[in-house]
């Protein structure tokens, strides 16, 4: 069963995001919301870790959370898709289950 992993912590402050990436299965999706949105940016100390995971999982970010933190979508790692809340809902429907990495 495909799972949507919802992450809401900055990878620069907490281990939640790394822990999530360590427990995903092939075909799962990861959605960054709230403070986790900052993890979508290319060229950070975290971006290589996320890019490695992107071989197995699809990665999304809530666009509103990125914009709220002063970051534009053109700075995102290639392959990450920005979604709005309607897209967030679609992801919860497309995946059979969800897990929040609080």
């Amino acid at each position: 069963m495909a799972m949507l992993h919802i992450v809401n912590k900055s990878p620069f402050e907490k281990v939640s995001f790394r822990s999530c990436l360590n427990h995903v299965s092939k075909g799962d999706s990861v959605l960054m919301i709230e403070d986790a949105a900052v993890g979508a940016i290319e060229g950070t100390s975290f971006s290589e870790k996320l890019k490695t995971a992107m071989g197995d999982v699809s990665v999304y970010v809530l666009g509103g959370d990125l914009a709220a933190r002063g970051l534009s979508e053109d700075r995102m790692i290639d392959g990450i898709k920005a979604v709005d809340y309607a897209g967030f809902v679609d992801l919860t429907v497309e995946n059979e289950t969800t897990q929040s990495w609080l």
């Binding site: 809401n8 919301i33 709230e34 403070d35 809340y85 967030f88 809902v89």
Partner: peptide
């Protein structure tokens, strides 16, 4: 929802998510 309003964004996120769910007919 595990957090109170204002202290953490989770209540705002949940509200927006619920509105989107309802808008899509869920």
């Amino acid at each position: 929802i595990n957090e109170g309003p204002y202290q953490h964004q989770s209540a705002d996120s949940a509200l927006q998510f619920c509105r989107s769910l309802l808008a899509q007919g869920h």
